[in-house]
Amino acid sequence: MMEFSVNHPILFVMVGILIAVVLAQSIYFLVRALKRAKEKGIDQKTIKATISSAAIFTIAPAIAILVGVVALSKSLGVALPWLRLSVIGSITYETVAANNALTALGLGAGQTITDPSVFVTVLWVMTLGISIGIILVPFVTKKIQGGMNKIGMKDKKWGEIFNNAMFLGMISAFLGYVFCDVGLVLKGDTSGLVPVCVMAVSAVVMAICGICAKKFKIRWLTDYALPLSLISGMAMAIPFTNWLG
């Protein structure tokens, strides 16, 4: 029997294997989509812009995910958070799931786990809690998508409006979330205004990029407008938080 530690090398080996399989899946689908793009005659410039823009855009959110790995590593070691945040997980979910399990065990979030059965308990809670997506997606995706495609086929104009409405509905929910704490201002707490200001900065940068790209015909500006607005918003969050608390 092996002596347990949250950072035991064998945990890293197992997690490494799992992540390699996940990586292989991404590469497999990427290669297939690139091949198909060529067959369909999609402009290679569009493909290149899609790749580089997606890569640049991903850097800041990925570093934020890394912050989650570091935070969870205090009690769970590095291997488990590495897996949980590379595969299915998201920062908001994993922290809650881990805390639920640790609370049920009567432990605090900052203590390092030394008992393997405690570790396995936390591991099961985190794994089963997030697993619904990965269990259902292989079986329902085709049906949902088939239903969606019918909408576009019957009435092309409505199909287009439907798509825009769907994205707008999703975006409006997140916009609402940005304003969820502004009510605190009435109690003298201005911290709820920070996300609103950050969103405004990001929106203004995006608008400026869009206008400049159109006026001066700068193609790359359109491709990197989203990462630029994201980074500007995140950077301005620092002075806004200092100012508004």
């Binding site: 800041a60 959110p61 570093i63 934020a64 912050v67 409006i161 825009n164 409405a165 994205f167 707008l168 975006i171 409006s172 997140f174 916009l175 979330y177 940005v178 920070v194 996300p195 609103v196 950050v198 969103m199 405004a200 900065v201 990001s202 929106a203 940068v205 995006m206 608008a207 869009g210 407008a225 989203l226 607005s229 994201l230 980074i231 500007s232 918003g233 995140m234 950077a235 969050a237 620092i238 806004f240 938080t241 200092n242």
Partner: peptide
Amino acid sequence: PAFDMILPALFGGLAVVFISKNAKLS
């Protein structure tokens, strides 16, 4: 604060694109 504010920073930019194209619907 920068890492805490990732969602507002993301959706501010995205909102501009979709609201400007679908002002009435939004």
